[in-house]
Structures are given as structure tokens and as C-alpha cells.
Design a protein around this nucleic acid. Structure first.
Lengths: 206, 206
DNA sequence: TAGATTGTTAATCGATTAACAATC
DNA sequence: TAGATTGTTAATCGATTAACAATC
């Protein structure tokens, strides 16, 4: 859990708040309230106020929250008031889509290099990137001080690539491979497996 | 929460158990225990036993769980002992990757049709699919009794397409658009937004 | 001032864990 | 039988909510 006493479940909601605030800003709004934010997200206003109070006082009684100011503060707290360089490993269909995804940049992330171990792919262009040899991964990560990686390799290779990410100094891994991976305590992992979500829903479908 | 008294957080872990069991089966194992399963997943053995006990008794004291039998039971509980037809709406880079993803079929899902509203895309082939006109969505969903959909359209169109999915009788939506969507109480929604996961991790990176 | 909304406390609710009898 | 592991109960832990004084 890092050094912080803030529950991880609270940290996990902050990006959601940030995303909703961005949308409000795009709609031209300048002020919001815990109630309005809560309605958009299906979360109680009390929870939003409680969550935010973990980090400071960002609102005004009687008025609510300045969208611009709260956005700025949340970005600072989540450390996305900077742009993180991200490495992408595995350039299959999914990796290709991730490499071309335009939605990272304005939310704090920038893909800077993409890797594959298939000799037929190495050197090919994908969008603005040239696919690099996965054998160069560790030295690149260290050389460019890359701390964030996205993993889009087959399940069979997920753990071995993970080990090299860790060796290269990566501290946060977004794993698209449908499997659990092991990392040292200080490395964070998040998973994306669409089938888990689908299976969770069909339980409820009559 | 549907009709069931089982907490949704428990339902959400069952697909994880199922996935780990499949891997064990692939490794040639036939028996496991709540402890072994828990170690793989970073979950306590007590929690696994408690979760499973919500649905019945699947193990043997002193022995553990038959991987084959427990797999079968979890598939039945999650209703993935059948194959669900899935519609995919939005054929950008991500939609293309999802359409080509081979990992759905053996886990209970099959993409049967893909849609876009861009006249330049309609009619094009993507893998085995021909992109259909999104204007045909509602009639197709009803005609084929499709209950599950994946949404890979831009944020600006997410809500309007969602409304048509609901109109067509869809009961479960996997939303790849980075926004919250509104649905009637009986329709389930799950979200995939990689940036939310990344932002949740950078909080902890020093 | 009156109305609104925050930040915070205490109460409630729900989830996780520990422990153990049952039993394979 | 002895050892192992389940299913379940009670205890613990943590998260959410309700309520309200403070204050804009």
C-alpha cells in the first residue's frame, strides 16, 4: 500500500472523479457539488466528501467545488500533473490498438516505445512507433527511466516479461494478459480482462 | 442487484476463480485447495471458502476441490456453461482488436455482429465479420435475441448508442468508452478504461 | 439574513478473517 | 488412525452513510 494511510479503494475512486470533472469542464461548467458529482457517478455525496477530505479541503461551504481547482488538485494527488512515459510490450491486435490510442496523452500518459519478440515484427512501423526488439527492453527502460508499462503479450509470456519489466525499474504495470502475475511488493499491478467483466454480468441475466 | 442475495463483490470474484482453475487444468492438475487457489490470486483461503459456500458445497474435507467439478459448477453459476452471442458497436482500432480477439470463445462469449455508423466503414470486412450499419442495430438485437454488447464508440456517442442497445433488449453492456452511461435498473454495465488503472497506480509511484 | 453545501463525527452496515467442529 | 481441509460461526475489521455544526 505504499507509505500512505489512505485506503486504496479511495485512491481508486479519484481517477473517476477526475474523469467526471473533465467532462463537466468540457460542458462549460465551472462549479459543481458533491451531490452533482455523485449523481453522475452513482456514488453518494457523503462518500465523495469523505474521500476528498483524506487529502485536504477543496470546497467552499454553501458553494461547492471549483471544477478547475479540484481538477488541478486531483491531478497533483494522483501525480498526473506530469506526463508519464509508458512502454508497451506485445504488438498484436490489442497492442496495436493501445499504441494508437489517442486518449492517454491528455490524462497523464504517453507511449514512448513499443516492443515485440517476433523477428517478423521488429522494425515495423505502428503509427509513429517502430517496433523494437524485446531483448532491448531492460536496457531501454533503465536508460529512459521508464516507470510505467503496459503488457499485451500472451499469457505464456506474461510472467517472464514482467520479471524483465521489474528488472528494468518499472513500478506500475497494466496487464492485459488474462492471468495473474507476481511482482515485488513495491511494484503495482492492475489488470484488464474483458471476459471477467462479461462473466460478472451474465450471472444476473435471467 | 438482481434477485440474488449474494453480494456483487462475491460474484465479481468467481470469474477470477474460474480463470485460475482453467490455468491449473491446463497445467495438468486435478485437485486444488482453497489455500493453493488463494496463493495464486492473492486472496485468503477463508475468503475463497466463504465465497463458494454462498452457492453450495463443492469440496471434500481433507482433500480439497476437484478442479474439473468446481470449474463446471462455477460455469453453471455464472451462466457461462453456454455461449452468449455478443454485439460489438464501434469499429475503430479498439473495436477491430476486440472483434479479432480469440479469447472470448472458450470462456462463454462469441461476437456475432459488429456495427459502425461511418458510411465508409459499413460493408468492410474485419476478420470474419462484415461491418453492419448501426442503424440496423435495434432490429438485429431483437431479431437475434442478443443480450450482451460491447461498446467501443467515442464518448460523445456512448449514451445514445446505449439507449439503442437497451431498446434492442440488451441486458449486459461492456463499455470501453471512458465515460459513465445511464441504463435502466435491470441492465448491467461494466467499464474498461485503462487510464483509470494507470492513474490509480501512479499515486503510489514515488 | 436565509439557503446551501462543506468537512467531520458517530453510527451503521457489510466484508473479511480467525478459529474450529465435522469429516474425508 | 493421523493429517488435512472443508464449511460455518463468531469476532474483527474497514467502509459507507447519516447527521449536523460550521460557514460561505
Amino acid at each position: 500500500m505504499g507509505t500512505s494511510a489512505v485506503p486504496d479503494i479511495v485512491v481508486g475512486r479519484l481517477p473517476l472523479y477526475l474523469r467526471a470533472l473533465s467532462q463537466m469542464e468540457a460542458e462549460g461548467k465551472e462549479i459543481t457539488s458533491s451531490q452533482e458529482l455523485g449523481e453522475r457517478l452513482g456514488i453518494s455525496s457523503a462518500q465523495i466528501r469523505k474521500d476528498l477530505s483524506q487529502f485536504g479541503e477543496f470546497g467552499k461551504q454553501g458553494t461547492g467545488y471549483s471544477i478547475g481547482y479540484l481538477t488541478e488538485q486531483l491531478k497533483r494527488i494522483l501525480k498526473v500533473n506530469q506526463t508519464w512515459d509508458v512502454a508497451l510490450i506485445g504488438v498484436g491486435d490489442l497492442g496495436r490498438a493501445v499504441a494508437n490510442y489517442a486518449g492517454f496523452l491528455d490524462r497523464g500518459f504517453r507511449v514512448v516505445a513499443i516492443y515485440d519478440n517476433d523477428p517478423r515484427k521488429i522494425g515495423l512501423k505502428v503509427g509513429p512507433f517502430q517496433i523494437r526488439d524485446a531483448a532491448k527492453l531492460v536496457q531501454d527502460l533503465r536508460g529512459q527511466r521508464i516507470q510505467v508499462a503496459m503488457l499485451a503479450v500472451p499469457v505464456a509470456e506474461a510472467q517472464s516479461v514482467t520479471d524483465r519489466l521489474v528488472e528494468g525499474g518499472v513500478r506500475a504495470i497494466l496487464c492485459y494478459a488474462p492471468t495473474s502475475i507476481s511482482v515485488p511488493r513495491l511494484v503495482r499491478v492492475q489488470y484488464i480482462d474483458p471476459v471477467l467483466h462479461l462473466q460478472r454480468m451474465t450471472y444476473y441475466v435471467p
